[in-house]
């Protein structure tokens, strides 16, 4: 008999506590945004697909075409190629493509790069209609970036 009334009162009290919790949520500000029109800032820690870094001093990429990333990549999704040019020390980069359909985002290429020429991008809107849409030309991307 005692348990019956204890149940009743603790139950009723917990119901009131529950109502209080949801009412606080009701009057607290909205945390979602209307996505395509309003966008949240991406956290700097976000690891998108890799991108070539634009050097602030030279205004160009830092890649020396050593090919470490290409060899390190466990999925074999990076292709790097270069050519010897007159007046340029070492090799000049001509091709740097990423096949993002195979990339597992392990980051080994970023780790291994001797000149810190690679970094993670902030891209997250990655819808495409064909698999070729995910074959990125990173050299073109870095040249187009302002």
């Amino acid at each position: 008999m005692k348990a019956y009334f204890t149940d009743l009162f603790t139950g009723a009290w917990s119901l009131i506590v529950g109502l209080k919790v949801t009412f606080k949520a009701l009057i607290s500000p909205v945390v979602t945004v209307q996505y395509p029109r309003v966008k949240n800032e991406v956290t700097p820690n976000y690891r998108g697909h890799i991108d070539l870094v634009k050097d602030a001093e030279t205004g160009s990429h830092r890649c020396i075409t050593c090919g470490s990333c290409m060899r390190e990549c466990p999925s074999g999704c990076i292709v790097v190629d270069g050519e010897k040019r007159e007046g340029v020390k070492g090799k000049a980069l001509t091709v740097f493509t990423l096949d993002f359909t195979k990339c597992s985002l392990c980051g080994a290429c970023v780790e291994v790069c001797p000149t810190q020429a690679l970094d993670y991008s902030q891209e997250y809107e990655l819808a495409g209609s064909a698999r070729e849409d995910f074959h990125y030309d990173l050299l073109k991307r870095v040249e187009e970036r302002e």
Binding site: A25, S28, P29, V30, V31, Q34
Partner: peptide, 13 residues
């Protein structure tokens, strides 16, 4: 609308 705001969403907009 209320369901949205109880969950800190906006509901139909």
């Amino acid at each position: 609308k209320l369901a949205g705001h109880f969950q800190c969403r906006t509901g139909p907009m």
